[in-house]
């Protein structure tokens, strides 16, 4: 049986790991390659490098980070942030990434999803979605690190990215991100029901039990967290022990 995946995410800016709360007040916490090795040792099922400023300040040293990490870490590596073209995808995959995560650019240019999937395969293409509930109670899609509301319906967008060939959706709830009150269960349920591709829960993990809650209450395939693992409040191993004790298949 497939294991549920626990995925630590490293938000990287200028080659350093940072983590913000609700995308504001970013603090630096370390070397991304070292962090990736630590997560690998803890049993991470996949590691995400997210170049958080790339979408508006240009791409930088992230490829060097990936190249070094790929020599030391032997689990799938996903890279996101500022990937604008098939050429960006190719250079990122060649550097050692196994998957590409596209977010803002996919909203601006949905064809990018299709082109990437056609050339590299759907398994390579993860679409990240930043979203929150508006005053009318509907979830809409945001871009540029949550700065711009595209007034695009979340469920419609999730179905669109699946149709275009995305292999996976990483669903980040801006309402719960950085707040540590648990993953956004209603939002996850809605998206998991709308699509047939794996959905990764993101945003809101605060306690060890939050991961198991997401797996028990929704059919999400994986759960991602950044700051929780970063500030060493929890290890991936502790999260997996909790899941295992609750009967959830983990590696």
């Amino acid at each position: 049986m497939l294991a549920k995946r626990i995925i630590p995410c490293l938000d990287v800016r200028d080659g350093k790991v940072v983590k913000g709360v609700n995308f504001e007040g970013i603090k630096e916490v370390g070397d991304p390659v070292e962090c990736a090795c630590e997560y690998n040792a803890q049993g991470a099922d996949e590691i995400v490098f997210y170049d958080i400023t790339a979408s508006h300040e240009g791409r930088g040293v992230i490829l060097d980070v990936v190249r070094s990490a790929a020599k030391k870490v032997f689990v799938p590596l996903t890279v996101g942030g500022g990937i604008k073209s098939v050429e960006d995808m190719r250079s990122t995959l060649r550097a050692g990434a196994d998957k590409i995560s596209v977010n803002s650019q996919a909203v601006k240019n949905p064809q990018l999803i299709k082109d990437g999937a056609d050339i590299f395969g759907s398994q390579c293409i993860c679409v990240g979605i930043d979203t929150k509930r508006n005053a009318q109670g509907k979830w809409t899609v945001f871009i540029n690190g949550g700065r711009i509301d595209m007034h695009l319906d979340l469920i419609e967008w999730a179905k669109t990215v699946e149709r275009l060939g995305a292999g996976e959706i990483c669903l980040n709830s801006m309402d719960t991100d950085g707040v540590r009150g648990g993953f956004d269960i209603p939002m996850l349920k809605a998206v998991v029901q709308a699509v047939n591709i794996p959905v990764i829960a993101s945003g809101g993990a605060g306690r060890v039990g939050d991961f198991a809650d997401a797996f028990l209450q929704t059919d999400c395939s994986a759960a991602l967290a950044a700051s929780l693992f970063h500030f060493r409040e929890l290890t991936v191993g502790e999260v997996k022990d909790d899941c295992r004790a609750k009967g959830i298949p983990v590696r």
């Binding site: 049986m1 497939l2 294991a3 759907s122 398994q123 292999g167 047939n196």
Partner: peptide
């Protein structure tokens, strides 16, 4: 179950 089969399996 969906195709492709992606992930960690025993």
């Amino acid at each position: 179950l969906p195709i492709p089969h992606i992930g960690w399996n025993e």
